[in-house]
Amino acid sequence: MKVTADRSRCMAAGHCAISAPAVFDHGEDGLVVVLDAEPGEDQRRAVEVAENLCPSRAIALLDASAAAPAQGAPPAG
């Protein structure tokens, strides 16, 4: 799974660092920083939550089609 965060869209709302702290953090400027651009599958649910919550659509999960659980399905693992 590949993860990107577009700093030019980020509005520093902070949801990503709360929902997936192993994958996202914030820089001194308050904007998103990706800590782990290729996180393991155990992070999928957390990254999906971050992607869903990000108000400015700054976060993208690149291979969302691969093994993405159906909506409402329990988190894998």
Binding site: A12, I18, H26, D29, G30, L31
Partner: peptide, 14 residues
């Protein structure tokens, strides 16, 4: 966006 980013550090989680 310019004004919001000026303030982002002061309202960040950190």
């Amino acid at each position: 966006d310019v004004h919001r980013r000026l303030l982002a550090p002061d309202f960040s989680l950190k």
